[in-house]
Design a protein around this nucleic acid. Sequence first.
DNA 1: AACATAATGTAGCCGACGCTACAAACGGCA
DNA 2: TGCCGTTTGTAGCGTCGGCTACATTATGTT
Lengths: 146, 146
Amino acid sequence: MPKPAAPPVRPTALQAESLRRTRREHATETAEDYVEAIADLTASRGEARLVDLARRLGVTHVTVNRTLARLRRDGYVSTRPYRAIFLTEAGEKLAASGRRHTTVVAFLESLGIPAKAAALDAEGLEHHVGPETLAAFERHLRKAGK
Amino acid sequence: MPKPAAPPVRPTALQAESLRRTRREHATETAEDYVEAIADLTASRGEARLVDLARRLGVTHVTVNRTLARLRRDGYVSTRPYRAIFLTEAGEKLAASGRRHTTVVAFLESLGIPAKAAALDAEGLEHHVGPETLAAFERHLRKAGK
DNA sequence: AACATAATGTAGCCGACGCTACAAACGGCA
DNA sequence: TGCCGTTTGTAGCGTCGGCTACATTATGTT
């Protein structure tokens, strides 16, 4: 994000708000990374195991375990000792919306739309993108973006 | 960043690496935000005060104080009780490089280059962009981007 | 069945980044 | 000069996301 350096200080409150939003988004980012990884693993190999997640996310199994505890607490996953990890409905939704969001943003950007505008527009668009359209976006991305 | 959902799991290590890098970048983001804010404030009103920083960054003065302590520890700022905050040479450099980086990225994106590529290219380009070129970039951005 | 290895769990630590509440120093104005 | 509001400092707390070290449970192989 281009922070205007030339025009003095002006929009103090606005900048603060933007920074705060960035931080808020950070908070859910991890959760999204996890649920998306779980969804992918479940889809690709039938079950999501803790070690796979750890490898996939580049952290230790301990970290995964603790994060899973939080996700469980927040109702995104259901886990049982020494068993595979499953997404709850809320988890599925979060994973889907996360994937949908990144896909839409990527698609818009692939059309040459500046990241900022793309992110902004995606925020609104993503709620109206059906499965077919989403698939089309993904197809386009696979072809265009290497 | 488009996380490929369709092609199964494949690049485990690569994805982990990318996530790790994202986290590392987060770490310096805050420092950059602070030094840039300090630089801006110093430029625009002669001195950077703690409360201004707090307002500007949207956090409490306490948080600013503690972050400043870390920045002092890391050699980016010099502070004295109840006095304005100054950047050290390292701090100036960090502020400049941060501003330079965001400018270059924004410029590339304004040309329609997808964010990912822009970020990647900027990483290399920014070290070769002189003051005049940077100014030109900024001029272009001020005209093009609203 | 027995054992070795892999997977999962637990304990305890650390740092970054927030916060509220309270204390102390500064500064301007009556 | 003295007082009051502003600014800065400090104490203590919480959450998140990492980690190492060690304990326990599954699992697969002989």
